[in-house]
Simulated scan of single mutants.
Amino acid sequence: MSWNLYIGSDTENSPLGEATAIQKAFNEVFDSLEWEQLIPSDECSLNVHGGFSIEFTKAGDHYESAMTRGGYNHLKELAMICKQFGWQLFDCQEGEQLDLENPYSLYE
């Protein structure tokens, strides 16, 4: 089980989407997120309930991809957002894509 998850588009070389829409979606699911505007990326952190941080790679006003540090305790919520936007969720250590319908199945 990895604490590093990659979030990417289902379509090769396609961005995740418009940054403000993605931030809104994450804020609706995780009401305690803290955001930092960095260059050339943005980062959010959830510092409660076995939290995580996510660094979004930015290109203009769009996010290209994202990488988490942590997130195991919130796989269902992360998978839900990935389904909403048509993204993939990939466990970097295991080298496998997570099943968005049952994200914990990889670890059973």
Rank of each mutant, 00 (worst) to 15 (best):
S32V: 12
P15T: 08
K24E: 11
C82V: 02
M80W: 07
K76H: 12
P40Q: 14
I39M: 14
S2W: 05
A79D: 04
L16S: 02
S9D: 08
L46T: 08
K58H: 01
S32F: 14
I54Y: 01
W87C: 01
T68Q: 04
E18L: 05
L33P: 00
F30T: 02
E101Y: 10
T20Q: 08
D91R: 00
E43D: 03
S45V: 06
F52W: 06
E12L: 07
Q88P: 00
T68W: 00
E36Y: 12
C92S: 15
P15S: 01
G70Y: 05
G17H: 07
F56Q: 00
L5M: 11
G51F: 04
E94W: 11
I7V: 12
W87P: 03
F30W: 05
P15I: 09
L33T: 06
E55K: 12
E36A: 12
E28R: 10
E64I: 15
K24L: 11
H62C: 10
L38S: 01
V48A: 14
S65F: 04
S53E: 13
S9Q: 07
W35I: 08
G8C: 05
L38R: 14
Q88L: 10
S2K: 08
E55C: 05
C82N: 00
L106R: 04
S14Y: 05
A21S: 09
S53N: 09
S105N: 13
A21I: 10
K24H: 13
L38C: 11
N4C: 09
I7Y: 02
E96Y: 13
E101F: 04
K24R: 13
N4E: 12
S2P: 08
Y72S: 06
